[in-house]
């Protein structure tokens, strides 16, 4: 029997679900509301030098990649199954497209994180 690829994608879905469950709400608040509106943070925070320093730090890179990649894998996995719930029955081709989209997004993040090492 051919080995199923389900455990791999379910693990990525689960990891993304766990990460977003633990820090997702606070992260969305910080980057999307707290800093832009100046609630709990100085409104001028998240400047180019600050974020560049974060993206050039090894642990910072790991954190940024983990958030973008795992959130994408979590989201795309659920989007795919959500289509089934809505009565749109998609075949393995579109399933691959959803996981491929998450994989491409992760690859893009990885390339950009390497590229910012040479910025500034």
């Amino acid at each position: 029997m051919k080995r199923s690829n389900k455990p791999i994608f379910w693990s990525l879905f689960g990891a993304g679900g766990m990460l977003s469950a633990l820090i997702g709400a606070m992260l969305v608040f910080i980057t999307g509301l707290g800093i832009p509106l100046g609630i709990g943070f100085p409104q001028e925070a998240m400047t180019y030098p600050q974020v560049l320093a974060l993206a050039q730090n090894f642990l910072g890179k790991v954190a940024i990649l983990a958030v973008i990649s795992l959130f994408l894998f979590h989201g795309c996995h659920r989007l795919y199954h959500g289509l089934h719930d809505l009565g749109i029955h998609v075949g393995p081709g579109l399933k691959a497209a959803f996981h491929g989209f998450a994989a491409l997004g992760s690859l893009a993040a990885l390339i950009l994180l390497v590229r910012v090492s040479f910025s500034g």
């Binding site: 974020v51 958030v67 959130f71 910025s119």
Partner: peptide, 26 residues
């Protein structure tokens, strides 16, 4: 609950665009 994934996906893309813009300079 399932719909939350739409927002999580878009949020990840917002951050990815931010990273892309960061790589392009100030």
């Amino acid at each position: 609950r399932e719909a939350s994934c739409v927002f999580i996906t878009i949020y990840a893309l917002v951050l990815l665009v931010g990273l892309w813009r960061l790589s392009q300079g100030q």
